[in-house]
């Protein structure tokens, strides 16, 4: 959309006007200079080769293995059906090191970027995020009881009653 103007010429020059923004400019410059030395190396790629995460699913799921890209598409809600056309019910942990490993190693995103992605989906009405659990035990129990569900736990956690899915890279 366009609007026209009714401004009349003014001879007034550029008056300097101090706002709080001047302080911000200085802050930004300082912070930028500090950034010459990279402070954090929590890149997803740093630890991508090995993962501490095992993928589990409800026994009703007939899939035995998934490619990383498929898992990414499931957790970004771009793929919502199993090959037999049943609904995929994705689950996740609310936080912790296993959640971090899963998001960074397998979804290849930072935890905050993943959270932001889902905020955008929620606040534009395009979907709801994976069902989130506080503990691995709660997640395993839900996956064991919910047809079509998929989740992840530590490879050291015993997973009775669920179906393991191999990850293909």
């Amino acid at each position: 959309m366009r609007t026209e103007r009714t401004c009349k010429p003014l001879e007034r020059g550029f008056r300097r006007h101090l706002t709080a923004g001047r302080g911000l400019a200085a802050l930004w410059l300082l912070v930028s200079l500090l950034s010459v030395a990279p402070i954090h190396q929590t890149d997803a790629r740093a630890a991508r080769k090995e993962t501490r995460v095992a993928i589990i699913a409800n026994p009703s799921v007939s899939v035995d293995s998934l490619e990383v890209v498929d898992l990414q598409r499931i957790y970004l809600s771009k793929r919502t059906r199993w090959p037999d056309d049943t609904r995929i019910v994705a689950t996740m942990l609310k936080g912790g090191s296993i959640h971090k490993s899963f998001v960074e190693d397998i979804l290849e995103r930072s935890v905050s970027k993943f959270a932001t992605y889902w905020k955008q989906i929620v606040f534009t009405g395009q979907g709801v995020p994976p069902k989130a659990f506080d503990t691995e035990e709660e997640l395993i129990e839900f996956v064991a009881q919910t047809p079509g569900s998929i989740g992840y736990v530590s490879i050291q956690t015993p997973t009775a009653g669920v179906h393991s899915i191999a990850l293909v890279r």
Binding site: R5, T6, C7, K8, L10, F14, R15, G21, L27
Partner: peptide, 30 residues
């Protein structure tokens, strides 16, 4: 927090940039 340096008034509201006599009071650099 953010700071903007602007050249031009192409998106300003004319009615919000008038003096008491209804004359436009807009500056190029702001």
């Amino acid at each position: 927090l953010e700071e903007h340096w602007v050249d031009g008034v192409g998106q300003l509201s004319p009615s919000e940039n008038q003096d008491a006599n209804g004359q436009t009071d807009a500056n190029r650099y702001w």
